[in-house]
Amino acid sequence: MRRAVVALAAGALLVACAPDPTADVAGSSWQVTDIWTTPGEPSALPPQSAGLARLAFGEQSLSGHTGCAPIQGTVTFTRAGEPARTEDADTLRIDHIEGDTAADDCPALHTHEQLRELLAPGAEFDLRHAERELTLTLRVDAVDRPAIGLAAI
Rank of each mutant, 00 (worst) to 15 (best):
R79V: 04
P70L: 09
T37E: 14
D88H: 11
A80Q: 07
L118I: 05
L55E: 10
F77L: 12
A69K: 01
R132W: 04
F77S: 11
A108R: 15
A123I: 02
A10H: 09
T86A: 15
E87C: 07
L119S: 00
A102F: 11
A102V: 08
P19T: 14
F77V: 10
I35K: 11
T78C: 02
W30M: 00
A50L: 09
Q31L: 13
L62P: 06
A142C: 10
D20C: 13
S61I: 05
V5S: 15
A44K: 01
A7F: 10
W30Y: 00
D88M: 11
L14P: 07
A18Y: 12
A89W: 07
E87Y: 08
M1V: 03
S63G: 11
P19W: 12
A18Q: 14
P21N: 14
L127K: 06
E133F: 00
L8E: 14
G64M: 04
R132E: 03
H129I: 01
A7N: 09
A142Y: 09
R128G: 05
T22W: 06
R85P: 03
L118P: 06
D95I: 06
D24K: 13
T78Q: 01
H112C: 03
P21Q: 14
T37C: 12
P70Y: 09
E87L: 10
A103R: 15
Q60D: 12
L127M: 14
C17V: 12
A53V: 03
L13H: 01
L150Y: 00
T33E: 05
D144K: 05
E41D: 10
T91E: 04
E113K: 12
S49K: 04
L45V: 13
V25L: 02
A9Y: 00
A120S: 15
L134W: 01
V32L: 07
I71E: 01
E124Q: 13
E133H: 03
L52H: 02
L134E: 00
L115S: 13
T101F: 08
E41S: 13
G27E: 02
G40E: 04
P121M: 10
P42A: 09
T76A: 04
C17T: 14
A147E: 04
S61M: 06
V140I: 07
D20I: 08
E133N: 03
M1S: 03
T137H: 06
E131W: 07
I148Q: 00
D126L: 12
A89E: 10
V5E: 15
L150I: 00
A16C: 00
I97D: 01
T33A: 05
T37Y: 14
P83Q: 04
G122F: 00
L13F: 03
R79T: 05
E124F: 07
E113P: 09
H96M: 09
E41F: 09
I94N: 05
P21A: 15
T33Q: 05
W30K: 00
T111V: 10
H96E: 08
E59N: 13
G51V: 08
A69R: 01
A84E: 08
A103L: 14
S63I: 09
F57E: 02
D24A: 14
P47M: 02
Q60V: 10
